[in-house]
Amino acid sequence: MANKYKYSRTIVIGHKDDGTPIRKYIQDNNKARFEAKVRAVQMLVARGGTPGKVTVEQWAWQWYHTYKEPHVGESQRNNYEEHLRLRICPAIGFLALDNVKPFQLQEMMNNARTSKGKPLGASTAAKLHYITHAIFEQAEINGLIASSPFRRIETVGEDEKSRRALTRAEEQIVREVAKRHYAG
Rank of each mutant, 00 (worst) to 15 (best):
T132D: 06
A178N: 03
A36P: 00
K179G: 04
Y25T: 14
A112K: 04
A32V: 04
I92W: 06
A134Y: 01
I131V: 13
A165G: 00
R85C: 03
R85I: 03
P149M: 07
W61D: 02
A91N: 06
R180Q: 12
E160Y: 02
A134G: 03
E176D: 15
N79F: 04
P90V: 06
L105T: 02
V100N: 11
I131T: 10
T66F: 01
P70I: 10
G184T: 08
Q42N: 10
G184E: 11
S8Y: 10
Y5C: 14
E176V: 04
R180V: 09
I92S: 08
M43I: 09
S162P: 00
N110M: 08
A125L: 01
G52H: 07
R39V: 03
S123C: 02
S147H: 01
M43G: 03
T66D: 13
I26H: 05
R113Y: 04
K24F: 14
P21R: 15
T66I: 00
V54H: 02
W59R: 03
H181Y: 12
P90A: 12
D28F: 01
L128R: 01
V72Y: 10
E57L: 00
K116A: 13
A134H: 04
L128G: 02
V41K: 05
S162R: 10
A36V: 01
R39K: 11
Q106I: 07
K127R: 10
N110T: 08
P149H: 07
V45M: 07
D17Q: 03
Q76E: 14
R152L: 07
A122Y: 01
I11E: 13
K16M: 08
N110S: 13
E154G: 04
S123V: 05
K31I: 03
N30Y: 02
R77K: 15
R85T: 12
A46F: 04
S162L: 07
E57W: 00
I22H: 03
K179Q: 14
L120A: 07
Y80P: 02
D17S: 04
L44N: 02
R77P: 02
P119Y: 09
E137G: 00
R175S: 11
